[in-house]
Amino acid sequence: MSWSSFNHIEEISMKKVVVLGAGGKMGYRCSRNLKGSPYEVSHVEISEAGQARLRELDIEFRPADQVLPEADVVILAIPDNAIHKATHALEPLFKKGAILIALDAAAPFAGELPDRQDLTIFVAHPCHPPIFNDETGLEAKRDYFGGLAAKQNIVCALMRGPEEHYALAEDVSRRMYAPVMRCHRATVDHMAILEPVLSETICATCLTVIREATDEAVRRGVSKEVAHDFILGHLNVELAILFDQLPGVRMSDAANRAVELAKAEIFIPDWKKVFEPEAIAQSIREITRPNS
């Protein structure tokens, strides 16, 4: 069943959705976006701070044992390093055939979710609004995370469970991350490559170095305003060239030579080993390890 064929109000209005951690960082966004949806949505939040945030949205919260036994879909808006403890404690409450939606691939990849074969495991993660977009409104332009005003794409994976559950889980995911353009289907293994490896191990690290290098330019006498204007402008055009936004345009020979020399100086030759399965598994073990 495709998402478009599933998207009928009379069909989805019968489905019950529970947001676990409904007032947390991601839970708040999901709760806000699902407010007014055709689903029957319940919210579970145990922290006082999270409960206060839900009150700001005029959303009531209920105990887990009152809502989970009837939930068709359970959104796990819980930190990666707390998912194992929370889901195993709540395991007896999950309805047979329920769909658990994880907001990140780390915990499912690491085997942190309950091993009940009657539970469907689905993963849905946002791509966040793209750098190159057609947004015009100020609110959308400044919605860097997405899920508020700016359009974004999402990636989903059905890790375990019947194929017919995919359409329902995708529909819930589209609504909680709205406004959504494309929904890409992937495997959990591929999602683990995308995050943490591509987005954090590589991208966040390189961008952190760029920020540190910008600060170093300022320390050496370049004004902060000049340094920031210069690097942010160059990031824009260089990303446009490297990600095929300017067909036929390439970096200059001098720039390419500078990159060639710098890579040998800055990166170790086998840096791509971070994509190897054991390296990915180790990174995810660190992410999902409970705080001591």
Rank of each mutant, 00 (worst) to 15 (best):
M251V: 03
I9Y: 13
Q245G: 07
P79G: 08
S4Q: 11
A105W: 11
A227V: 13
A157K: 02
V172W: 00
R175C: 12
N153T: 14
D65E: 10
A227M: 03
G111M: 08
N236G: 07
V67G: 03
E212G: 00
V188D: 04
P162Y: 10
E45D: 03
P79M: 01
F230W: 14
I9E: 09
C127H: 11
K85G: 07
E212M: 12
D134I: 12
P290N: 09
E48Y: 02
G137W: 01
V209L: 14
A64M: 02
A149N: 11
N153F: 15
R174P: 08
P269V: 11
D215K: 14
R257D: 15
D270F: 06
E216D: 12
W271N: 07
G146K: 13
K15N: 02
I284N: 06
G233C: 09
E112W: 02
C203I: 15
R182M: 15
L34P: 00
I193P: 00
Y177L: 03
A167T: 01
D104T: 15
E278G: 03
R220A: 13
A86R: 03
A102L: 08
A110M: 11
H88Y: 10
V172L: 01
E260Q: 09
K151E: 12
H184K: 13
E286Q: 14
H234W: 15
P130N: 10
E216K: 13
G97V: 12
S37G: 03
A77V: 05
P114G: 07
L103T: 06
F243C: 13
C203G: 11
E48P: 01
E135I: 13
A204D: 00
P114A: 08
V259K: 07
M191D: 07
D189S: 13
T205H: 09
E164N: 10
F109Q: 02
E286L: 12
V18D: 04
P63A: 07
K224M: 12
K35A: 05
E238Q: 11
R116I: 05
A71W: 00
H84V: 04
E56K: 07
H234K: 05
P247F: 01
S173A: 13
L261T: 09
G161A: 09
A167D: 11
V218T: 04
I202R: 00
R160I: 08
L242E: 04
G97D: 04
A258I: 15
L76H: 03
P196G: 02
G147F: 01
E200K: 06
E139V: 14
K151G: 09
L158F: 01
L194S: 13
R29C: 05
A89P: 04
A89E: 14
G146W: 04
E70Q: 06
P63T: 10
D229I: 07
I241M: 07
F275D: 04
E48V: 10
L246M: 15
R53I: 01
P290I: 02
R160K: 14
K273C: 07
E238H: 13
V67A: 02
E10G: 04
N81A: 05
S5D: 06
L138M: 10
R220M: 12
C30V: 15
N7V: 11
R55F: 05
P162K: 14
R142W: 06
I154S: 00
K95L: 09
